[in-house]
């Protein structure tokens, strides 16, 4: 299991009713899997992040990742969505 930090800003703090939380995910969980999980838990994540026509991330909201010790990078591509999460990663939704 990997411990992941989630930061919810603006719209996403309204969706979740939280500013941040920590969760555990199984090994090989991808960013995309995590978004699905948050969609099930809170609703509104897929609509906010994914373009329903193309299935790609839209430009209306952002999801970014910071690997432990690394820079915060916006996730913009399919490879980004398929990235596997590791212990200590922080995901930022805004």
């Amino acid at each position: 299991m990997a411990k992941i930090n989630l930061k919810y800003i603006a719209h996403f703090s309204l969706l979740t009713g939280k500013l941040e939380e920590g969760i555990e995910v199984r090994e090989k969980t991808t960013v995309s899997d995590l978004i699905k999980r948050l969609e099930q838990k809170y609703g509104g994540f897929e609509e906010a992040l994914i373009d329903e026509k193309t299935g790609r991330l839209n430009s209306r909201n952002k999801v970014a990742i910071r690997k432990a010790g690394g820079w915060t990078e916006n996730i913009t591509t399919l490879e980004g969505l398929n990235m596997e999460l590791s212990d200590g990663d922080t995901l930022i939704f805004w």
Binding site: A10, S59, R60, A64, W71, W94
Partner: peptide, 26 residues
């Protein structure tokens, strides 16, 4: 409907919301 992430921030919440974004980007 806007395709810019800051439209909603400015339009609904105001720019102080940006603070936590800056924090998360270090």
């Amino acid at each position: 409907g806007s395709k810019d992430p800051f439209t909603r921030i400015w339009g609904l919440y105001g720019s102080p919301i940006v603070l936590r974004i800056q924090q998360e980007y270090g």
